[in-house]
Design a protein around this nucleic acid. Structure first.
Lengths: 117, 117
DNA sequence: TCCATATTTCAAATATCGGTGAAATATTGA
DNA sequence: TCAATATTTCACCGATATTTGAAATATGGA
């Protein structure tokens, strides 16, 4: 993932309500949750939530689809994984001290820009 | 790591110059780099850099020490690892799709709040 | 002491973000 | 069509963030 997209994702996640949205949606996978249900779960106004959802969607961290009169939002796990992988592999060069905190193996070189076949 | 500290860290990292600072410092480990050298490496003004360094330090991602007339900044790898671990384990519940992107094993439960002995 | 180097602090200007509530849009069902 | 539901859009406002450049602080050497 390119750094500019990582930056957008980090900005999107760097907000209390928005990080909670991600936490709420990840375990639901592709089923996702309707905007109204998210607003109720987090106790935020509909218009406020809509603003935050659009930030997350613009960053590529959420997808949305219409279902009847609802709009269902779901976490894009590949995008989330891409952000984490960037931090681990490209930003932090798979530093052993950092990997130790994540339960990761530090030996193999997983950096993304190698584009292995 | 508590969510409020993760949020501070994400805010700190969600900026072009600041993410570059982290990328520059991680491979140097505890040796770190003087503020002036960082400013030169990134092509930013001294006062602008000082602002960004203080943001990163306030978030706990950098440490600083004085050495003669220099101030040496170094990445706090444990803090960085803590942020990544939070995203992976607590935010994303070690979701298999997300782990797949990072080269991680998704089976073991690594959630931080279990506080294993 | 005096000067040069290294860094931070400060204030002012600008830009961006986030919250609020009303209005607009879209969909469904009576 | 009408009313109810679900969501987004909009304008406004205050709070934060960022940049800039000048001034302040601290250190080391001549």
């Amino acid at each position: 993932m390119e750094q500019s997209r990582v930056l957008k994702s980090l900005s999107a996640m760097a907000h209390d309500t928005r990080l909670e949205i991600v936490r709420l949606l990840v375990p639901r996978g592709k089923d996702g949750l309707a905007a109204g249900a998210i607003a109720e779960a987090l106790g935020v106004s509909a218009s406020g939530l809509s603003f935050h959802l659009s930030q997350l969607e613009a960053a590529g961290l959420l997808t949305s689809r219409k279902a009847s009169r609802h709009v269902i939002y779901a976490a894009d796990c590949k995008a989330l994984g891409g952000v984490i992988a960037y931090l681990l592999n490209d930003c932090c060069a798979r530093d052993p001290d950092i990997c130790a905190c994540t339960g990761q193996d530090a030996n193999t070189d997983h950096r993304e820009d190698h584009h292995p076949a």
